[in-house]
Design a binder for these strands. Sequence first.
DNA 1: TCCCTTATAGTCAAACGGATTATAATTGGA
DNA 2: TCCAATTATAATCCGTTTGACTATAAGGGA
Lengths: 322, 322
Amino acid sequence: MDDQETGASKDRAAVTGDEVKVDLIAFVVAVNDGEPCVLTIGQADTLPSGPFALEHRSLQSGLRGWVEQQTGHPLGYIEQLYTFADRDRVGAERRQRAISISYLALTRMEKASGSPKCGWRSWYEYFPWEDHRSGTPPVLLDVLRPRLIEWANSVDDAAMRRERRQRAAMAFGFDDRHWNEELTLQRYELVYEAGLVQEAGSGRDTTRASLVPSKPMVADHRRIVATGIARLRSKIKYRPVVFELMPQSFTLLQLQRTVEALAGRLINKPNFRRLIEQQELVEETGETSVDTGGRPARLYRFRHAVLDETAIVGTKLPVARG
Amino acid sequence: MDDQETGASKDRAAVTGDEVKVDLIAFVVAVNDGEPCVLTIGQADTLPSGPFALEHRSLQSGLRGWVEQQTGHPLGYIEQLYTFADRDRVGAERRQRAISISYLALTRMEKASGSPKCGWRSWYEYFPWEDHRSGTPPVLLDVLRPRLIEWANSVDDAAMRRERRQRAAMAFGFDDRHWNEELTLQRYELVYEAGLVQEAGSGRDTTRASLVPSKPMVADHRRIVATGIARLRSKIKYRPVVFELMPQSFTLLQLQRTVEALAGRLINKPNFRRLIEQQELVEETGETSVDTGGRPARLYRFRHAVLDETAIVGTKLPVARG
DNA sequence: TCCCTTATAGTCAAACGGATTATAATTGGA
DNA sequence: TCCAATTATAATCCGTTTGACTATAAGGGA
């Protein structure tokens, strides 16, 4: 089981011991009342995290442990996002390497017994330009667009100017292009690169005039959240993961509102219902909901059998492409 | 930049130092003459790999270094696959934790200057049941199906029998279900779980009668390859990554054969051409190829501009769904 | 009772996608 | 030289999907 025939210098390295610290870090999502929320600690600027330690049976169980300890929230669905090497830290005596393994976790917010040090925040506080449920957010055209154009024009090379403008146009859907909700990470990288957002505790110039208003996070946590949003927006279209965020029984409109919250855009109601029903993702409970007004709606529950049938094959949700 | 407010015991752990070894491991792919190949070292049963060390600027550059050193092959496109904790190793003095970060890399096989200790193998040697380009492989119905049914029936619980049969049927497309080429990992996990394949150096019973004939790999390397194949088969459908595997100029049929090699199934020629052309993924070089027979074909090259245009937006390849 | 809100059903047309057929341009051999 | 085989390229067909829209049903509140 030891793979030692993979090169001489590998053994050398194994002996000298290039050991690193491993951090586990969680982007925990719940949707409450039509708002997609992220679980934070500290000043609502930090994701739950902790080092991978000897007592952990596995990476995932280590992550569960840290999140539960720091927030009081047990995790359901977990999926790995990305592993990256942090900038070098200075250890006690020698240079210290560290890597972080980030995860996306879905949960229900109920019984918010969570410890007082933690809290749920709408993820759109950190990414105001990502919520298109009420049309294009004003900040996009009023603030982001001019500043990104400014940023593009601030370089001398004409080719690079064009490239920057095109990147911005594609990511944000400027110039009659369509908004693509899955490009959350690219958009964050653009605004970050353009210096339009800054993170908590960064050494950056804090006095810079009128950045794009948005809530910062510690270190690269906001980047992890952007990665997770993008992954989730993509995944809900082909896997029945939304139901991890729903209560036991729900109306079709509640389900639609949840998908809309995640996607950050509205969905055509009849089409949504058609797709849900023809895929037999849900079944009626027989009851109806006493509602906030209007005709009572049938209550449905997730058909757990589909996890055997299609966990593998693929689901569809009608998040319009524009 | 230090995130220390994330819990008291985190600091404790940081002090006591739960340090782990990190291995970088590469699944390197090239397509030669219609065969999808994996780069191996050792007895064609080991993927290039090496520890992440202090001198590496980043995870990716560490990976590039190891692969180049062990095989002589420079890497082009690289994408992270998955990070997992290995089973505990016994270190020199104390228990030793190790994690592996696996990558998918695409390259062209040319100038196979590679060191003598490495070689390219068709990945279908390791997964004979994955190649459906000449129809359903006999091994699937003749060997795998009966043995998987056997395996399913070998448990007492009726519900578990049904679940096993259903898993097998879905993954392999038994009982009139369609073959889904993206389920490579699930299929490997099934045959592994059913004890139908064994890996090199595993402590398993080697004398077990007539396993499914396939080439084994060291440790969990074959599992990594299965993960990479699945990722690649999925990715070619929405990102123009195939071109990383193509020479400078190529005919449309060569392009199609490459996609077919990866997908393990045939594609309808007119539809393939239509999709490639209407997406403007390629442009004519003006030349034509002197061919192996038949009317000469136009030569095309990849329109690198699409990397700016659609790297983000999504490409389509007509790999039929069945 | 009227009106507002929401649920639910049904329709329509355009786009997409898979399959098939037809025609053109070569090479190699009878 | 002509024919057969092979490949390239163009065009068509048709069923399904999907986005947008309309109509009707069923409740609550003023």
